[in-house]
Computed example of a mutant assay.
Amino acid sequence: MNKAFTKESDEADDDDPQLPLALSGGKNYITPQGYARIRGELLDLIDNERPKVVEIVHWAASNGDRSENGDYIYGKKRLREIDRRIRFLTKRLEIMEVSDPSVHHGSDQIFFGATVTYIDDAGVQRTVTILGVDEADSSLAQVSWVSPIARTLLKARTGDVLQLVTPAGIVEIEVLSVQYPVPGPNGSTV
């Protein structure tokens, strides 16, 4: 029989997304805000979205013939997607290590959570914030702490000239400034 006419099993949909390899001895740093956002997403899926979809699937199943019932078929598929995301987020939260960057406020040395302004040898100035793998967003000038630029910048200080290895070759960059969030009154960041 031609493979094009065989039915795929539902188990193919249950494959978990691949987790990034354990980084630097298994550490997966994240800011308190990033942890709260990911935990909030997980709790919303468990407490709100999943029960709504279960209710729809239950209602659709009570209508009879499930083979052509769009609400039932779509609901079951959506339920698998939600369960997959819940498993993924749960695994990620288990290996996260919350690191508050505000403890370094006032320091000129670059650590996790720093916002760093640097200039390259072509005179282009850039500002990046070094965050966790699960929270960095390049469109907001945020880079993962395991990215090449972050690895080059970490532990450097204001005024240091560093060698950044790029696909185009080595680029010299100079650290212009380092900033951290201000600690809040109860130890939280502002």
Rank of each mutant, 00 (worst) to 15 (best):
N186R: 11
G64P: 05
V161M: 10
G64R: 09
N28M: 11
E81C: 04
R50Q: 13
V128D: 00
G106C: 06
T6D: 15
L154M: 15
R126E: 08
I82G: 01
S107R: 01
L43A: 13
P181L: 08
T31E: 05
L176E: 00
D83Y: 05
T158E: 13
R80A: 08
L153G: 03
S147G: 08
A122C: 04
M1G: 15
D134L: 12
T158H: 07
S102G: 12
T31W: 03
E94K: 08
P185N: 09
V171S: 01
V53R: 00
R80E: 02
A22W: 12
A61G: 08
G169H: 04
G132A: 11
S9V: 13
W59D: 13
D120K: 04
R157L: 03
I38G: 05
D47V: 07
R151W: 09
V54D: 06
A168E: 06
L45A: 03
Y180L: 05
T31D: 04
M96P: 04
G184T: 11
G123M: 02
T115S: 08
R37L: 15
S102W: 06
V128I: 13
R80P: 02
V103E: 05
V178E: 00
D44R: 09
N2H: 13
A150H: 03
W145S: 00
N2D: 12
Q18M: 14
L43R: 13
K91F: 06
Q109L: 04
D10Q: 08
Q33I: 13
H58W: 06
V171H: 03
V171E: 02
P51T: 10
V171M: 05
